[in-house]
């Protein structure tokens, strides 16, 4: 197994992590910016989970808002009803969403590309509508307020009653999930996913168990999105069905197309993009749909591997140039 954290990667990762740790703690940094950073963290987890399924394994999902909603509502309801405290509800939300993902994977196993897109699309609508109609549990279209997240009991332990406190929790979770994802995609699992994306027939000929790895990809992706959903609900303190429409699934898709398929770094960049664009466009709400669509079209046609692919391409060209010059020097 390759080492995930090398000296070289530490060199640029450490300063970023230090900035992320120190700057938000400074008293003059507004809560608003900390909230934005938290949102980027949440979307990063979604993007990585989404990328594992769509970018790495090549299974298009247009229903990830459904997983996101399941995670958010599971965590919120468990805490709101006083069943378990937040720190227990969070993993339960993730696992429950993972199980739903596993169940959805079963019919999709026999299917090919576009069928999966349609199945996940239908799934997204079913979740949206179910949340809306299950008034008694979900509060219908009025939504539900999410209690303060705590580490420990219900109102004991560390109560994350400010955006800054919760930010550090989200930062820790994001880093953990990035680390986990790197471990998944750089080992045999990631290679199996990529092989399935390139050609299912070739992959199964080489001994990749399609059933196992496709189910796994679905389940991991749902788990990630569920965790992110739970964090999202607690970050916003309030969730309602109109936050989890098909447009959100679509935004998730734009996020990984812009960031870059099959790339963890790309997922992070996509998350930054998805958070930043609506902030810049807050006064132009009506233009959002068309701008998202145009950006998606532009990227899929002209920059199919996203920003991450672009950077990789530049690095590659630079390396080639360096090789060429060193060869000349030898001659």
């Amino acid at each position: 197994m390759e080492k995930v954290i090398t000296k070289q990667s530490l060199k640029w990762m450490l300063p970023i992590i230090i900035v992320l740790l120190v700057v938000p703690a400074l008293p003059f940094v507004l809560d608003y910016y900390v909230f934005i950073l938290s949102l980027i963290g949440v979307y990063t987890i979604v993007a990585i989970g989404f990328n594992i399924m769509t970018g790495y394994t090549g299974l298009i999902s247009i229903g990830h808002a459904g997983f996101f909603a399941i995670g958010a509502y599971t965590a919120a309801i468990l805490v709101d009803r006083g069943l378990v405290p937040f720190i227990v509800a969070l993993p339960i939300a993730g696992i429950f969403t993972g199980v739903i993902g596993f169940l959805l994977a079963l019919p999709c196993l026999r299917l090919f590309g576009m069928y999966i897109a349609m199945a996940t699309l239908a799934f997204g609508f079913i979740v949206e509508e179910t949340v809306l109609q299950l008034n008694a549990i979900t509060g219908g279209h009025q939504g539900i307020a999410v209690p303060m997240p705590t580490i420990g009991g219900f109102n004991s332990g560390i109560v994350m009653d400010s955006d800054k406190k919760f930010y550090y929790f989200i930062l820790a979770m994001t880093l953990i999930f990035i680390f986990l994802a790197i471990n998944i995609v750089r080992t045999k699992y990631g290679r199996a996913f990529l092989a399935i994306r390139e050609s299912e027939i070739a992959a199964s000929t080489m001994g990749v168990d399609l059933t196992k790895y496709k189910t796994m990809s679905f389940t991991i992706s749902a788990f990630y999105t569920g965790i992110a959903g739970a964090l999202f609900g607690n970050l916003l303190h309030y969730i309602a069905p109109n936050a989890f429409t098909i447009f959100l699934s679509f935004q998730f898709l734009v996020m990984i197309v812009v960031g870059g398929f099959a790339s963890v770094v790309g997922s992070i960049m996509g998350a930054v993009f998805l958070t930043a664009l609506p902030e810049f466009m807050s006064s132009l709400q009506e233009w959002q749909i068309i701008v998202f669509g145009l950006i998606l079209l532009f990227f899929i046609i002209f920059v199919p591997y996203g920003v991450a692919g672009l950077i990789k391409g530049i690095q590659y060209k630079r390396a080639l140039k360096a090789m060429a010059t060193s060869e000349q020097e030898i001659q």
């Binding site: 298009i60 897109a117 679509f250 197309v257 068309i290 998202f292 669509g293 950006i295 998606l296 899929i300």
Partner: peptide, 11 residues
């Protein structure tokens, strides 16, 4: 598929 989804959103 992704491109036509983008087109749908533009329309």
């Amino acid at each position: 598929v992704i491109a036509t989804l983008g087109l749908a959103s533009v329309l």
